[in-house]
Nucleic acid binder design. Structure first.
Lengths: 342, 342
DNA sequence: CCCAACTGCGCAATCGTTTACTCAGTTGTC
DNA sequence: GACAACTGAGTAAACGATTGCGCAGTTGGG
């Protein structure tokens, strides 16, 4: 039979059979010696290991994956409407992905960033169906809550960054957004603010809860509802939104809760260009606790979601679920990260 | 034979054989119908496609990969000393990875972020040897130049973000760092600066070339060499470095070239806390052109490396190399991105 | 001395696809 | 009417590993 089209490039095209032959043992023994599993004599093991090192032989991962039915790879998805991957440049996702990568690596797993277009109801099924990953980490429920929920019924090894609704089936890790909203508002009130604004995107459960928290804290303090300054997610658009809002306001607030640190950054920029002093005339608090927030001018006070810790928890839960154990959702306590903008 | 350990979780555990049986055809025909390759009648093709949709059957990607010897996956590596993945939270890498993901997705490739510890000379060989990826994108040559160079001799499908040295074997895409340094310095000089400082990390070829460019431009203008303010890469450490430097300076410069936008951000913060007005008393220019730089206060003037474009080029070159064609290095022309900090 | 237990290793099945080759039936051409 | 060309579909051999089971040789206990 004529050889079929082969890999185009190879550093060393040796397979286990050839290697075993060179080593003078069977493929079974070679495999066991290299993986350190099964009964192989000490001597044979070291001899084979040395030969592998010398020849630069490494077992093919794909074949191993097929046989063992494990890929040691975890998929990371960011389901955000049509242009999902565009948003990978968003600092929040970036940061999250970085932290997840750190945590996954510690468990020996790789991280696969894939194309997913939430165009129909079955995008998640299609992604899982190909069997390329051992588990799934989803960053944000976005508007795909019901899809995630329905998949979670049959597919266990999945952990989602996001909120927990009553009766929710899928495993989620996320900060208590309502509580965070309360904390942000309370902080501004304690600083003497009497009229707050909430700036941020409208879509997404998280943002709704944060706003609700702000509202609740204001009500509890006997203060008026917040002015709402809706904005896009994408920084440039958000900046334009916010600058326009600020120009149109009848009465200026004396404190602003931003739905996210990136929104707060856009807000700081718009305020600076209006000549509005922060925190003198206006106090601004963000939400997320991204590392970069500490490097804005003025350094941003923010509600810290403890993303690094959150990523670690997500991965831990996922490992448990991959192992077949149960693992319940975890709610992270938000913390006030006090800096100069308030 | 007792079934061996199987995948723990499966949404639908059907294989081609079972599916074909249900469809009343051979596995060959089913496979061909689903992949749209080979001679299958129009009628059979649509019938099988419909059945697959109905049953939610999808061919196993791992098996396909093994058979076709292609994974449709590209590895992305960031070789940076021991704590490689720690640096994934760095805005530069984040941004780059986001852009690369965008570009790869357009070609139908996935992106694999993996553990690589450049602990010995063979880390790259080991990574390639397992055959999990069709190609490799390396972000930054760092101190692994010779390793990359030696691997490039045998392994073709690899493209590196970084500089081009004379006689270099591996394919690199990167901006002309010397030229960028010249541009940055010339801009500050045109703005009236007479004593410049260069702030940035010491390691890395890129930074050395940028500094050399600054030096050359100053020399050409008959101005003194730049004051050097070395700093760490990591933002918090960089901030401390720079604040300390500024406190110790005998004579203050009137313009600063930062080796990277993140360094410029730290610098802006340190200057703001000294009460130094930018751009009034001190002009600051960054390097990279990260989206976030436009959202600093004041918005950062910077040398734009055109990372989005660069990522697209890297992926294009890689696709060509995967296809077995030749593809030479590309040098990107840096551009001045004029904003408020100068 | 016998039988069981253990050790070290090899045989061959298996994971789930793709695809070269084969083959029967149909059509077209001289 | 013979023969070539084409169509549509099936058979079975890969791809490169892991691993259940079997087997020969050794050890040990009763």
């Amino acid at each position: 039979m004529v050889p079929i089209a082969r890999r185009h490039h190879e550093t060393d095209d040796m397979n286990l059979k050839q290697f075993a032959e060179l080593a003078g043992v069977s493929t079974a023994t070679a495999s066991r010696a290299l993986s350190g599993t099964g009964r192989v004599s000490e001597e044979t093991t070291t001899r084979i290991a040395a030969l592998a090192e010398k020849l630069g032989y490494q077992p093919n991962a794909i074949a191993r994956n097929l046989r063992t039915q494990r890929t040691m790879t975890v998929g990371v998805l960011v389901p955000m409407g049509h242009d999902a991957l565009q948003h990978l440049s968003d600092p929040f996702f970036n940061t999250m992905i970085g932290f997840l990568a750190d945590a996954l690596v510690e468990h020996g797993y790789d991280l696969l960033l894939s194309r997913v277009l939430p165009d129909d109801e079955r995008w998640l099924d299609r992604y899982i169906g190909t069997g390329r990953v051992d588990g799934l980490l989803v960053i944000g429920q976005s508007d795909q809550y019901h899809v995630i929920e329905s998949v979670a019924r049959r597919y266990r090894p999945m952990v989602v960054w996001g909120g927990q609704m009553p009766g929710q089936r899928h495993c989620a890790v996320g900060s208590d957004n309502f509580r965070g909203g309360v904390m942000a508002a309370e902080h501004l009130i304690a600083r003497g603010c009497r009229l707050l604004a909430y700036a941020g995107p409208r879509q997404g459960v998280e943002f709704g809860e944060r706003l609700a928290g702000v509202r609740a804290a204001l009500a509890a303090a006997g203060l008026p509802d917040p002015i709402e300054l809706p904005s896009h997610f994408e920084p440039d658009a958000a900046y334009r939104d916010l600058a326009a809002h600020l120009g149109n306001l009848a009465t200026m607030p004396d404190g602003i809760v931003a739905g996210a640190d990136v929104t707060a950054a856009s807000m700081l920029k718009a305020l600076a260009e209006m000549g509005c002093d922060v925190p003198g005339t206006m106090r601004v608090i963000g939400y997320d606790g991204l590392p970069i927030a500490g490097h804005l001018v003025p350094a941003l006070t923010t509600i810290d979601q403890q993303l690094r810790e959150g990523a670690r928890i997500m991965v831990d839960l996922l490992m448990r679920r991959i192992a077949g154990e149960e693992a319940a959702s975890v709610r992270i306590e938000p913390r006030l990260l006090l800096r100069q903008s308030t």
